[in-house]
Design a protein around this nucleic acid. Structure first.
Lengths: 242, 242
DNA sequence: TCAAGTTGTCTAGTATCATAGACAACTTGG
DNA sequence: CCAAGTTGTCTATGATACTAGACAACTTGA
């Protein structure tokens, strides 16, 4: 399996080891707080050098998934982000409440045109001009979800530029005079990550995602933005409060 | 995106380019016989060095997916393997008839126990001992499908070892005195490749697969083997003759 | 014939990937 | 305290990966 004696697949060995360990955690073979096997044992399992294992563990530690303790062992840090679904859902508040560091980034903003479905959600006519914003959100340094957000280009001109500057949907809406907003119905489904989202979420091949479709309204019930979000299923659990 | 100026993802750049081009072919953006953009143009598209593009194209050419012509361009070779579904279905014959080189390999053989479904297919009782054989089949050097095959351990003792030696299901059955066999009902569904099969089929993230479940019978109608096969959807098309 | 565009090949330099061995620093359990 | 087991760090070597620039060899269309 070394780079020297087999045809290279273009995927680094340490990445395969890291994915394997992360999968073990996601599958529950290693629970939060568990001690992983020693570096030597992992190296034997994957038939690689101990240094290669250390590279893999370093990558996982850098993302906050494991934590190494000198002389003792390496322990699983990861726990799924508890993500309550309430009428007032703010990513930064949820992540902050878990003691983790929220971070958002704009991937891309572009003009779009309302499909029939989008128009219905936003209370517009099909074909109405929209702004489409593609974002990614992380807790600590681990990507949690990527979202596609649509806003009416008529109501929110230059929304893409404003989001790029503020990096917050809440602040963006404030700029346009929206002081508060509520989440309407939320639709949750599941699927398999596609190649684009896999790269953005730093997610391994064929992993499941949670798909959330939701529309936010102002306090009068007027639709403001509608979102299509894909969450890494292994890093989050939704809590629906009764 | 170079290995020098960004945090490395553990996936080689040339592999990302190769996957991108292969996806373009699979999606129909480039049809069989089409000329790909020039190496310089591809390099600009992906923002990599021309040599990196050449590495990607070499990997695709090595698998017979594209063909470079000096002074002219690089052309799409790939065409989906036409896979007729008849009562007498033999992989090697189908592949050979297309002028491609068939190749089979044993991944794993192990003992198993019949679920209710498997028992019904094979005419056994639930819980009956089975041999489970995991195989992969390739045309030229491109993986086409992975199959899980179950046989009755009572009727075919040591089937795993025999298959490892003969690498052919037809020859395996011959060893046990089966001179000919026919395929019964074939069920075709579709799905998304899982991580294990993705690695085995050398398939990119989240790609679709064709799932075929079938049972072979001897000429008296007695069930012999039942199979669960996963085909790379972008490399094969099934032909059902009327 | 000629110019433009294409793939093929070469040299060079830097960074990453992986292996190997040795030893330090630390924790744990007896 | 001590031995065993653990992670951390260091040096060293070779193979890959990626970039850069230059030029050769070839095809195509005007």
């Amino acid at each position: 399996m070394s780079m020297q004696d087999t045809a290279s697949s273009g995927v680094a060995l340490w990445r395969l080891v890291a994915d394997g360990i992360e999968r073990g955690i996601a599958d529950g073979r290693f629970a939060a707080g568990d001690k992983l096997p020693g570096e030597v044992e992992i190296a034997e399992t994957y038939r690689v050098n101990r240094h290669t294992v250390r590279r893999a563990l370093a990558a996982l530690a850098e993302r906050g998934i494991v934590r190494a303790e000198r002389g003792s062992g390496t322990y699983v840090e990861a726990q799924k982000l508890a993500y309550p679904l309430r009428s007032r859902t703010r990513f930064s508040e949820i992540v902050g409440a878990e003691g983790r560091e929220p971070h958002g980034r704009l991937i891309e903003a572009s003009d779009d045109v309302a499909t029939r479905e989008l128009a219905r959600e936003l209370g517009l006519k099909a074909g109405a001009p929209l702004v489409r914003i593609e974002t990614i959100r992380l807790a600590d340094r681990t990507p949690i979800c990527v979202s596609t957000t649509w806003l009416s280009a008529g109501l929110f001109p230059d929304a893409g530029a404003v989001f790029a500057a503020t990096r917050s949907m809440t602040k963006l809406l404030e700029r346009y005079g929206v002081r508060d907003y509520r989440r309407g119905a939320t639709r949750i489904t599941a699927g398999i990550v596609d190649a684009t989202d896999a790269a953005r979420l730093d997610l391994a091949l064929g992993r499941p995602i949670l798909v959330v479709d939701a529309t936010d309204h102002d306090l009068d019930g007027k639709p403001l933005v509608t979102k299509h979000s894909r969450f890494a299923a292994e890093r989050v659990e939704f809590l629906v409060e009764s």
